[in-house]
Amino acid sequence: MAIVELKNVTYKYPLTDTPVLKNINAQVNEGEFVAVIGPNGAGKSTLCYTVAGFVPHFFKGEITGAVEVAGSESSKSNLHEWVLNVGLAFQNPFNQISGAKYTVFEEIAFGLENIGVPREEMIQRVNDAMKLTGISELADRSPYSLSGGQQQRVALTSILVMRPKVLVLDEPTSQMDPIGTREVFGVIRALAEKGMTVILAEHKVEWIANFADRVVALHEGEIIADGKPSDVLTSDLLAEKGFGLSRYTSVARKAKAMGMWQKERLPVTLDEAVEGFTLTLPSPKGRGE
């Protein structure tokens, strides 16, 4: 069942002439994990803001079409109601951290305070959420004394603690090292497996290939591909449009042109690449080793 539905959505920021989103039609089913890819400027963040209600409620501008989440329509709702359904973690955690709190613990409790959650429950939920994202040891630090990667985790935790129906993440690991990235994607995957609906804007294609149920490709404000990761991430159209794809896909595409990739479908992951290229290589014994 669709929990998020975008019907013919077109949007322009205030004082601009060109729409950033053009005729977007998409549905996300309950429990689905959808990745949104595209070059910078393609409209990924704007799409995240739109699902999360910041467009148009906060950014204003001109929107046509309809955005529905769990049966209510964005233009007919208030942002403070809307955020109970949809949680958004911003790309830049600086833009999200309230600046009103001295500790990470209080920062994460901020949203719960605003909706009047009882104190005992609030403490419990904050502790649980921090444990989930592995930041319990940061509880007493100032949000501003943290590294970019740590701040991103605080921003993510402060959304998770609200238990939204839909989680929207705008490049949640852009400032993290590989280990941080791995841990955060592990958390997101665990949430998705528990049935959370996740919309993730992301450049890191190898993670998407392994985790997402579906990939939506945005280019200049339009959806140009929407389907299974293995189809979308290997499509020639995306390669032509300059999308960042996995090295396995790019090298196999070149190898195919040289007659050294025999399978119909190009690989996205390491395992698929190993499987496909093994067909090209002579058997290890035949290589004279």
Partner: peptide, 24 residues
Amino acid sequence: PPQLTRLGKRLGFKETVRNEEEFL
């Protein structure tokens, strides 16, 4: 290691490769 380095290793290449040219 880089994606293509890992791939080369899994395929049993004798030498370490680190870019498309070396891999091909």
